[in-house]
Amino acid sequence: MLAVVKIAGQQFKVQEGQSLYVPHLQGKTGDKVEFSDVLFVDNAGAVSVGSAVKATVKAEIVSDLVQGDKVIAFKMKRRKGFRKKHGHRTHYTRIKIESIA
């Protein structure tokens, strides 16, 4: 079974048993989360799209806070002495899909 689910404004293609990193969710390790905004479901060739989808995706939080790679934003104007360096590390949550029902 395959589903496309919207999590924190981004779309993810998920299957049962899959583990993935999503934008940071509130909760602790071991908590159960449920996503009801499912956009597409493929169940052994039976495809449901849009408002015809009546499914929810249930998952468990494996790691509650994972930091991504450092991203550097560097601005510079030549011959002016202007240099500005900003950096950040995006926070993610690792979840494991338990069921698509």
Rank of each mutant, 00 (worst) to 15 (best):
L2G: 08
A3W: 05
A3Y: 02
V5M: 06
K6P: 03
A8V: 07
G9Q: 11
Q10C: 08
Q11C: 03
Q11P: 06
F12C: 08
K13R: 10
Q15S: 11
E16I: 03
E16W: 00
G17Y: 05
S19E: 14
L20R: 06
L20F: 10
Y21L: 10
P23F: 07
Q26F: 14
K28L: 08
G30K: 04
G30N: 04
G30I: 08
K32P: 12
K32C: 05
V33T: 15
S36F: 01
S36N: 10
S36R: 09
V38R: 10
L39S: 02
L39I: 04
V41W: 04
V41I: 14
V41D: 06
D42F: 00
N43C: 09
N43Q: 10
A44W: 00
G45C: 14
V47D: 12
S48Q: 15
G50K: 07
S51D: 12
S51I: 14
A52Q: 10
V53G: 05
A55Q: 06
T56A: 07
V57W: 03
K58F: 10
K58D: 15
K58H: 09
A59P: 05
D64Y: 00
V66F: 01
G68I: 08
V71M: 03
A73P: 13
K75P: 14
K75E: 10
K77Q: 10
K77D: 14
K77L: 13
R78A: 12
R79S: 11
R79N: 09
G81P: 03
F82C: 05
R83V: 15
K84F: 15
K84V: 14
H86W: 13
H86C: 04
G87Y: 00
T90A: 07
T90N: 01
H91S: 08
Y92E: 05
I95M: 02
K96N: 04
E98G: 08
A101F: 14
A101I: 12
A101W: 05
